[in-house]
Amino acid sequence: MLKSPYDTDCITWSPQGRLYQVEYAMEAIKQGSLCVGLKSNQFAILATLNRAPSKLAEYQQKVYMIDDHIGLCFSGLTADGRLICKFLRTEALNYKYTYGTNCNPGRLVNRLSEKAQIKTQRSSKRPYGAGCLIAGFDEHGPHIYETNPDANFYEYYAFAIGSRNQSAKTYLEKNFETFPEASRDELVKHAIKAVKVSAQGDVELNGKSVSVAIVGQGQQFAFIDENEVERVLESLNQEMEVEV
């Protein structure tokens, strides 16, 4: 990457009106692991494609529990993702200690965006090099939020971030209208299939390389069992063979 005199800090604008450090952070997300989030009327699902540095290493965890009703997955720099996770856990715990109730997911996302914006306004800091998909459940139902290093956040019916996310987005766009009435098992299957269509054979898909988590009505945030993930992958492979 060419050195620019305008990328030494995050408050120096280029003549074209660009903040290069923010753009670098956004690019880090595009090169990170694939993350998928989708929701129905009752549940919200997070699914990730985990990577391993080598064949001798374990897969890196990308999905984390924040509270009983909130979880996140991140794409980008792992260190920044874990720092965001620690911040959200602290905020959720402080809110519960102060008010005696669970923190609203939207409020928590807003606090994260406020913190992310500070990183773009002081020359001594840098933007987070990680983007998150946050799944939560409150009195209004399940939610899927996306947060960015530029402090923007959005709520979606379904979304995907990370490397090769366009294939997953295309699949979600074609099927999202069926998600509201989908059952738990159907929603899990859609999440795993969205990951599968983006994998393109660059990693072996199994219960360890694909992580899936769920939260919803009567369901605290929890990880889907590896055996169940492998059963869904096997059924998807059989469906593809039949189509061929």
Rank of each mutant, 00 (worst) to 15 (best):
T78Q: 12
A79W: 07
D80C: 03
D80W: 02
D80T: 04
G81L: 04
G81P: 01
G81M: 04
R82H: 08
R82S: 01
R82W: 06
R82K: 15
L83K: 11
L83D: 07
L83H: 06
I84H: 09
I84S: 14
I84T: 11
I84W: 02
I84P: 01
C85S: 09
C85F: 00
C85M: 01
K86R: 13
K86P: 00
K86H: 09
K86G: 01
F87M: 11
L88P: 00
L88W: 02
E91W: 05
E91V: 09
A92E: 02
A92F: 05
L93F: 03
L93D: 06
L93T: 10
N94W: 00
Y95F: 15
Y95S: 14
K96R: 15
Y97G: 00
Y97V: 14
T98K: 15
T98P: 01
T98S: 15
T98F: 09
Y99K: 12
Y99C: 11
G100E: 04
G100W: 06
G100T: 08
T101C: 10
N102W: 04
N102A: 14
C103K: 08
C103H: 01
C103Q: 09
N104Y: 03
N104I: 03
N104C: 09
G106A: 14
R107A: 13
R107V: 07
R107P: 00
L108H: 06
V109T: 13
V109W: 05
L112Q: 09
L112H: 07
S113G: 03
S113M: 14
S113D: 02
E114N: 11
K115M: 11
A116E: 12
Q117Y: 15
Q117C: 01
Q117H: 14
Q117K: 08
Q117I: 02
Q117P: 01
I118F: 06
K119V: 00
K119E: 13
K119S: 12
K119G: 08
T120R: 10
Q121S: 13
Q121E: 14
R122P: 00
R122G: 00
S123W: 06
S124V: 10
S124H: 02
K125I: 05
K125N: 12
K125G: 01
R126L: 07
R126I: 04
R126S: 09
